[in-house]
C-alpha cells in the first residue's frame, strides 16, 4: 500500500513539474511575438513571394556572423521544394553587417501545395526565424521558434529606439 502511495506521489510530482515547465514554455511562446522586435536584427528573416504563375522568390537575411553557418548552403537548405521546381543558384550579398541569400525558382503549371523550411533542424544554432510569405491570396507574417509548438503571429512592430 505504501509503495502504491509512493508511486502516486511520484506521479503527482512528475506531473506538476511537467505542467510547470509547460507553463513556462507557454508563457514564453504567448509573449514572444510582442517582444521579438527587441532582438529582430539578431535573427534570420525569411521572405517568400509565391506567385500564381508558379514562380517563387526567396530571400533569407541574417547577421553576417550567423551567415557563416550557411556558407555552403544551397537553395534546398533554405526552402525544400517539390521536384518539379527548378531553383536558380543562390546569390549572396552583404550590406551593413547583414548578409542576404536570394534565389528564384520556377515550378511551372503545377503549383506546389507544400514547401519545407529545414533551417531550424539543419542549423541548430538558429533558434528562431521571422517569416513573411505572400501568396496570391494572402500575406502572413510570423515567427517560428525552436521552443514553441506553433507559429507566433501578431508580431509587434516596435523599433530598437523605443
Amino acid at each position: 500500500m505504501r509503495q502504491i502511495n509512493r508511486f502516486f506521489g511520484l506521479l503527482l510530482a512528475v506531473s506538476l513539474v511537467g505542467a510547470c515547465s509547460q507553463e513556462i514554455d507557454r508563457s514564453f511562446c504567448s509573449s514572444h511575438a510582442s517582444e521579438h522586435w527587441q532582438h529582430r536584427e539578431q535573427h534570420p528573416q525569411l521572405q517568400i513571394e509565391y506567385a500564381s504563375s508558379g514562380e517563387l522568390q526567396v530571400q533569407l537575411s541574417l547577421p553576417e556572423e550567423r551567415a557563416i553557418l550557411l556558407e555552403t548552403a544551397t537553395p534546398g537548405d533554405i526552402l525544400a521544394m517539390p521536384p518539379q521546381c527548378v531553383a536558380q543558384p543562390l546569390q549572396r550579398s552583404s550590406q551593413q553587417g547583414l548578409a542576404s541569400l536570394r534565389f528564384e525558382a520556377a515550378c511551372g503549371d503545377q503549383l506546389p501545395a507544400s514547401l519545407g523550411v529545414p533551417l531550424l533542424l539543419e542549423y541548430p544554432g538558429i533558434e528562431e526565424v521571422e517569416v513573411s510569405m505572400r501568396t496570391p491570396a494572402v500575406r502572413k507574417h510570423f515567427i517560428v521558434h525552436q521552443q514553441c509548438e506553433r507559429a507566433l503571429f501578431n508580431i509587434a512592430e516596435g523599433t530598437a529606439s523605443e
Binding site: 517568400i48 507544400s114 519545407g116 523550411v117 510569405m133 491570396a137 494572402v138 509548438e149 507559429a151
Partner: peptide, 23 residues
C-alpha cells in the same frame, strides 16, 4: 483545395503554417 502548407522542421517536430485562398 487551395491549401499551401509551409512546413518547418524543428527539434520538437514540425510546425506548419497554412495559406488558403477564399476566392
Amino acid at each position: 483545395d487551395s491549401e499551401i502548407a509551409l512546413r518547418f522542421a524543428t527539434g520538437r517536430g514540425e510546425t506548419v503554417v497554412y495559406f488558403y485562398d477564399y476566392s
